[in-house]
């Protein structure tokens, strides 16, 4: 073992120590962190004069909820209890209860089951953003993704909101070109959701 080899070994060990400090220690700030400015992102008050109507759902015991939806949207009860489907110009959406297994967390379930399922089911699936938030005191995970099927491309904002029993998923989809104009309404709908069991 010559001097160069010893110098390289010492350099490698020092680099690993420095890496540990950057990853876990006092120099963590040096690392580029993805900062999710959570609640503030979806709680932006964007001027929108569309009036909303209350929908109080009492289909499933222990999973009562209230959500506010624009009066201009066409709302129907969904196939499953506790669900709605909706249609509006240049888009559509749904609200549904989601049973999360007890041996996992909602976030883990989204990342390990829901997103892989979406990747398979949605043509040209591309995640645009994922962030954690609070919706009326409930943990929520907002997934924004794009579907590139070409006829035309669309964007979906999916909010997974945790609950005492089931979780709820609010999916709102719009054509990519119209998404920006509809996003304020989507945010208002998602922020209006609240469980009514308490």
């Amino acid at each position: 073992m010559n001097r160069n080899v010893i110098v390289i070994l010492i350099g490698t060990v020092l680099s690993i120590v420095l890496l540990s400090l950057i990853a876990f220690g006092p120099f963590t700030r040096l690392r580029n962190q993805k900062s999710f400015n959570t609640a503030s992102l979806i709680r932006k008050t964007i001027p929108n004069n569309d009036s909303l109507a209350d929908y109080l759902n009492k289909d499933v015991k222990e999973n009562y909820y209230k959500v506010m939806l624009p009066v201009k949207w066409a709302i129907k009860a969904g196939d499953k209890p506790g669900s709605y489907t909706m249609e509006f110009p240049h888009g559509y959406g749904s609200i549904a209860l989601m049973d999360v297994p007890d041996n996992t967390t909602l976030e883990l379930y989204i990342l390990s089951q829901e997103e892989p399922r979406l990747k398979k089911a949605v043509p040209g699936y591309q995640r645009l953003n994922y962030r954690k938030a609070k919706v009326n005191g409930n943990d929520a995970y907002i997934l924004l993704f794009e579907e590139k099927s070409g006829n035309p491309d669309s964007r979906t904002m999916a909010a997974y909101i945790s609950g005492a029993d089931n979780a709820v998923v609010i999916r709102l989809t719009a054509d990519t070109t119209d998404f920006k104009s509809l996003e304020p309404s989507f945010n208002r709908v998602m922020n209006s959701f609240n469980w009514r069991n308490q």
Binding site: V5, T12, S15, A23, R31, Q33, F36, L111
Partner: peptide, 28 residues
Amino acid sequence: DSQTQINFFVSWFFIILGVGGVLVDIFW
């Protein structure tokens, strides 16, 4: 997103270790 920190550490750890290994091999 919950594992970016550990991914940062492990990926760089492997890269540094690998480069160190290659350099040691060459100079040896």
